[in-house]
């Protein structure tokens, strides 16, 4: 049987969802018998190829996040929003009511202890969006895994259900939103 190709990315997230994925611990050795990783921050594949499954942590806070998300949508048959940030923006979206210029000024110009305040402006830096957006506002998302982060057991159940050709299902003991 061909192994399932899986890519993962972290956008405007804290990496906690990836950490929770790795908290499947020794089950990872079993997983890789059925799954082959494409682009992911835990390996050195930097561009996503044709994949069966894409797992995305974090919402969208800048232009680069949007590019990566669109690329993933194009290449992945099934695309999953993993965790609160991907689903509704999560904690980073708490900046949404505040105009960006206010945040910018305070952090780079207004603070005591900064010798030469300057607002970073290099073309190498992607442009931030004025608000943090959840993934499904920009592309179609096939599955949502709630939690901040979803527990390793949720991620494990999701993957093993998919691998077995079942519709993923979670009992109340697995589903949580914190």
């Amino acid at each position: 049987m061909a192994r399932l190709k899986v890519a993962t990315a972290t956008l405007a997230g804290c990496f906690g969802c990836h950490m929770s994925f790795l908290a499947i611990d020794e089950r990872i050795f079993e997983l890789v018998e059925h799954v082959e990783f494409d682009r992911s921050p835990i390996n050195d594949i930097k561009k996503v190829g044709e994949c069966d499954l894409g797992l995305i942590e974090g919402g969208l806070c800048n232009s680069e996040n949007v590019e990566v998300l669109r690329e993933f949508r194009k290449k992945c048959r099934i695309l999953v929003a993993v965790g609160a940030c991907a689903i509704n923006g999560g904690l980073p979206a708490q900046r949404n009511p505040i105009p960006l210029s206010v945040i910018l000024d305070e952090i780079y110009l207004g603070e005591a202890g900064i010798a030469h305040g300057v607002i970073p402006n290099d073309p190498e830096l992607p442009l931030p969006l004025n608000k943090v957006h959840p993934l499904h506002e920009v592309v179609k998302i096939d599955y949502f895994l709630p939690g901040c982060p979803p527990s390793a057991d949720v991620i494990w159940k999701f993957l093993t259900d998919l691998l077995a050709g079942r519709e993923p299902e979670f009992g109340p003991e697995l589903l949580h939103y914190d």
Binding site: L60, S63, V66, L100, I103, L104, I107, Y108, I119, P120, N121, D122, P123, L125, P126, L127, P128, L129, H133, E137, V138, V139, K140
Partner: peptide
């Protein structure tokens, strides 16, 4: 990553 910067760019974000 605390804050944001100034880029000579313009961006628009569209939904599906």
């Amino acid at each position: 990553t605390h804050a944001l910067g100034r880029m000579p760019l313009e961006i628009e974000l569209f939904d599906c």
